[in-house]
Amino acid sequence: MKGSYELFEHTADIGIRAIAPTLQGLVEAAGEGLYAVIGELLPAGDPRESLIEAEADSPAVLLRDYLGELLLTFERDGRIVTSVSALELGDEKLKASVQTERLDKARSRLHHEIKAVTYHELDLRETEEGFEATIIVDI
């Protein structure tokens, strides 16, 4: 089930609020929000499956770690996650099977360099409609 995200202002930085009926949708939407902060990122094919794993003491921190992996994959490999095919997100472990594609450098437009996904006001909660997460990135 697809989720959505919105970006909100936060002093010198930018916040991402993601909502989705399922945890998988939430993780996907938060990832899209992260990419939207960086710019207008377009895939250029060359799909590959990969596994992202994290261990932490709460689902919110696990989501933060997952987004940190997306940032690394973007910067190091020039690749972006285009879909999450399976997700296990417990209290202390995250396991996400994702599909990545090469970034289309020619057509993409980059606006911000994200220094880090922070812990400030970091939140992941269950709502009546599903799940909601708040993440602030340092620009």
Binding site: E9, T11, A12, I14
Partner: peptide
């Protein structure tokens, strides 16, 4: 130090 957020 900033006075306005980036969005503002």
């Amino acid at each position: 130090g900033r006075l306005m957020s980036r969005t503002a």
